[in-house]
Amino acid sequence: MEDDGSLTFESVSLKNTGKYTYTVFNAEGTQIDAGEKEINVYATAPKPTLTVTIKCKDGNATLTCDIRDRTDLTVSWYKEDNIIQNENNPKLLLTSAQVQENKTYSCSVSNPVSYHQSDSVTVSCPTGEGDPGPPKLFGFDFWIMVSILAGSGALLLLLICVLLFSNQRKKHQKDEREFRLRNLQAPAPTKTDPNTAETSDYK
């Protein structure tokens, strides 16, 4: 307590936070004022660590700003050094469209006496890192292979139909030739002489 009535804190710590009441008297001992003041002591804000969890299969990402369970800190988010408004939350969710932008993100923590910002992190889903990509068949794109196989199947079916039709036609032609050949090789019917027949009967 100073001679002028002011209160000086030495070796300030968090336990000094609280409400303080005061009363002022004049030289005659008469109270001339009274009141209450609240004093808040803040710890220095740490430099936050930004961690990124990307589910490339779903295309979404979760950014976490580590504030070490501090409730006195305000969290702000930045996209390429531009602040994202109304995001006072230690977690930031990004959609697949935002992830595909391959932009840098960072977060900051602050209180009335200090401020720190994290390092920037590029959020993306690189090819081959967690993202299975389109389905594969025999090492090639699934749908391309399905199209090729479907086209090949249709062509194979057409060839089978053509072969069956050709064999059936050949068989029909063969049967027709054999039928004609049998007709040509058949012996002609023998004609009986009526005079001879009558003479034989008479004898």
Score class of each variant (00 low, 15 high):
E198R: 15
L94P: 00
S13P: 04
V99Q: 08
C161V: 11
R70M: 12
E101H: 08
G35R: 00
Y105A: 03
F140N: 15
D193G: 05
R169A: 06
S96Y: 02
S124K: 15
Y202P: 04
A197S: 14
T44M: 13
M1R: 10
Y105P: 03
Q100T: 14
P132K: 07
Q31H: 09
T30D: 13
L50G: 01
N195P: 00
K103Y: 11
L164I: 09
G18T: 08
E80D: 11
A186F: 07
L92A: 06
P112D: 04
L158D: 05
L181Q: 12
T8L: 06
C56N: 01
N167Y: 10
Y20K: 05
S110D: 10
G59C: 03
K79M: 05
P189K: 10
Y42L: 05
D3G: 07
T122Q: 14
D119F: 03
Q98T: 11
D119W: 00
T64R: 05
N86C: 10
V123S: 09
D193L: 07
V162D: 10
R177D: 11
K79N: 04
D141M: 03
S76E: 07
T199M: 09
L92V: 01
S108L: 04
R68W: 07
T17H: 05
C161E: 05
T104Y: 05
P132C: 02
T49W: 02
V123D: 14
Y115L: 04
Y20M: 00
T95C: 09
L157A: 15
T8V: 09
G133N: 13
E176K: 08
E176C: 08
L92P: 00
E38C: 00
K15T: 14
P187C: 03
T190W: 00
T21F: 05
F25S: 08
E176G: 03
D69K: 15
P126E: 10
A34L: 09
S96L: 01
K203M: 07
P126W: 14
Y78G: 02
I148C: 15
V162L: 14
L149Q: 14
T95F: 04
G128D: 08
N111A: 06
N26Q: 02
W143I: 05
E10V: 13
V113H: 08
E129G: 01
Q85N: 09
P189N: 00
V12M: 05
R177Y: 02
S124T: 12
D141C: 01
A27Q: 13
I160G: 04
E178V: 13
E87A: 10
K19A: 15
